[in-house]
Amino acid sequence: MLSIKNLHASIEGTPILRGINLEVKAGEVHAIMGPNGSGKSTLASVLAGREEYEVTEGEVSFNGKDLLDYSPEDRAREGVFLAFQYPVEIPGVSSTNFLRTAVNQVREYRGLEPLDAVKFLTLMKEKMKLVEIDQKLLSRSLNEGFSGGEKKRNEIFQMAMLEPKLSILDETDSGLDIDALKIVSNGVNQLKSKDNATIVVTHYQRLLDYIVPDYVHVLYKGRIVKSGTKELALELEEKGYDWIKEAVDSEATV
C-alpha cells in the first residue's frame, strides 16, 4: 500500500528526515517510535503534505501513485488520514458541518453522490458509537474548548467517518488519561480491516498495549535505525532509547 524509499525532508533548510525506508501493506499496523526530535511527527506531516516541509530526495508511492505529486486535499481524498497531535480549533464551524463538507468533497473525488442530511446523520450516529462521542460535542465549534480527550476522540471519529485506507496517528496518546486511551484505541481497533493500514506514531509503549502493532520501527536522527515486532517496544519501555542512540552514534563516528 505504502512504499517509502530513501525519503529526505527538511524545514527551512534544516534536514530532518535523512533517508527513510518503509513498506506498509494492507492489514498491517506499524508503530513508529523514537526519542523527541527524531523526526516522527515530521514523517507524519510530510506524508500528509504539509507545505513547510520540503522533500529533497526520495519517493513515496501510495497504492501505485506518486503521493508526493498530490496536494494535501487530494492525498486525503486518495485515502490518507492524519490524526493530529494538536487538532486545530475552527471557531463558529460545528464538527458536523465541517465533516459534512469533508465527507462530501471526498465522495465527489471518488465519483460518489454527496450524502444528503439524513444519510449523513445516519452515518454519523453509527460512527459516534465507536468512540463514544456525544452528539452535543459535534454541534459545538470544531475543537474549540474541547478537552484533550475530546479532541483526540473527535480525531478518531473523523477517521471513522472518512474511512481512510492509511491512517497515521500522530501521538494520539499524548494528553490522554487511561480511560480515554482505552476508548480511542478501541475505536482504532474496530476500524482496522484487511484492506486498510495504520501507522501509529508514539513516544511511549503504553498505547501499544491497546493498539497492538505488527511491526515496530525506531526512528533516530531522521532514519529508521531498528525494526522489529511488538517485543521491541517492550524492550524500549524497559531500557529507554539510550542504548539505541549509543549504538547509532558510535557507528557514525567509526
Binding site: 500528509a48 503534505g49 504539509r50 507545505e51 496536494s71 494535501p72 486535499e73 492525498r75 486525503a76 481524498r77 488520514f81 492524519l82 493530529f84 487538532p87 486545530v88 480549533e89 475552527i90 471557531p91 463558529g92 464551524v93 458541518n97 465541517f98 465533516l99 463538507t101 469533508a102 465527507v103 468533497q105 471526498v106 473525488y109 465549534s141 473523523q158 472518512l162
Partner: peptide, 29 residues
C-alpha cells in the same frame, strides 16, 4: 492560520472551501 487550512485540506476540503468555511464560522454570530 495555515494550520486551520491545512487541517481542512487534510480532511479532503479544498483550500477555497476551507477559507469559506473558516470565514463563515467567524461571521456566524
Amino acid at each position: 492560520g495555515e494550520d486551520q487550512i491545512f487541517y481542512c485540506n487534510q480532511r479532503g476540503i479544498a483550500t477555497e472551501d476551507a477559507v469559506a468555511l473558516i470565514v463563515n464560522g467567524y461571521a456566524k454570530e
